[in-house]
Amino acid sequence: MPLLDVENVSRRFGGLVALDKVAFSVSAGQIKSIIGPNGAGKTTLLNVVSGLLSADTGRIQFRDSRIDGLKSHQIAQGGMSRTFQNPSLFLQMSVLENVMVGRHPRTRCGFAACCLRLPGQIREERRIRESALEHLRFVGLEGMAGAPAGALGFGERRMVELARALATEPSLLLLDEPASGLNNRETADLGELIRRIRERGITTLLVEHDMSLVMDISDDILVLHNGTPLAEGAPAVIQNNEEVIRVYLGTGLEDAAASQKS
């Protein structure tokens, strides 16, 4: 039984078919990547899976229950967490607070108990803080805990967002182009970090354009083209798939080389 099972999912925006009968699955413990040219529907797919958009047809099964039609916060509480291509932080709050918010689905606290600062509540708050610090340490940003999130650089914001996503203790982590805007060294560190996330027992579904990163860390790759799956398989298989090379990898690899030079 796969951890995430997407069946027959379609989504259109007016006349534009963004996703057309997409089906794939992610097994527990995998690092799976979704690649494809711009406009292939990768981000739409992540939005549908995480509940930000609804699917027009199809079903999505996560940890043995259907999640299509659920609200985003319910899906998050069920153990799925994600990051965005442009880090989506609470800019007016501190770095630590951002990650503390990630603990929300793993804490129980009634409104009254919160306001009255009952002793149990104060202990809970301390646990939230410690756990948030631990996740910041994991991404290497514990030194920035007190800084306002709005003051961070792009790469750091991405790491804070990742720490917040991890703080929800997900079983499935969705990463939307985590390497975009990062330099080579940062990208290498990111690959290492994603491997360490897997060691923690977290499954990762990755949308990414950086082919060296994708080929390096993925167990399995899904290629999307014009909203439909074009190919699926291990990196070696995808790299040698003629269809994939024709529509994407040929140009994709050149793009990657060009961006590395700049």
Binding site: E97, C109, C114, E124
Partner: peptide, 24 residues
């Protein structure tokens, strides 16, 4: 300083991110 208060600020700062952090 409270969980609910923080959640409220999170919602006003970035509703999408708040939702995806499991806040109703």
């Amino acid at each position: 300083y409270t969980l609910q208060g923080r959640a409220m600020r999170a919602c006003s700062s970035n509703p999408d991110a708040a939702m995806l952090s499991g806040i109703n």
